[in-house]
Amino acid sequence: MRIEVDRDRCCGSGNCVLAAPEVFDQDEADGLVLLLRPAPPAEAADRVRRAADLCPAGAIHLT
């Protein structure tokens, strides 16, 4: 699984951080998403899918 995030779309809701804190964080300066692990470990896959599903802005893309 590969993750891409679109910071222009991100509205800083933090849902991704709540779902998968080992993969997503928020920037201290602007609260927008920070991708910690573009290639997340297999055991995080479900949480990452949940993060993408819960993202209100459609800013997380999985391939």
């Binding site: 509205c11 800083g12 933090g14 951080v17 709540l18 928020q26 920037d27 201290e28 300066a29 602007d30 609260g31 927008l32």
Partner: peptide, 8 residues
Amino acid sequence: LTAEFMIK
């Protein structure tokens, strides 16, 4: 305001 109210 986003940084202000983020989880951290």
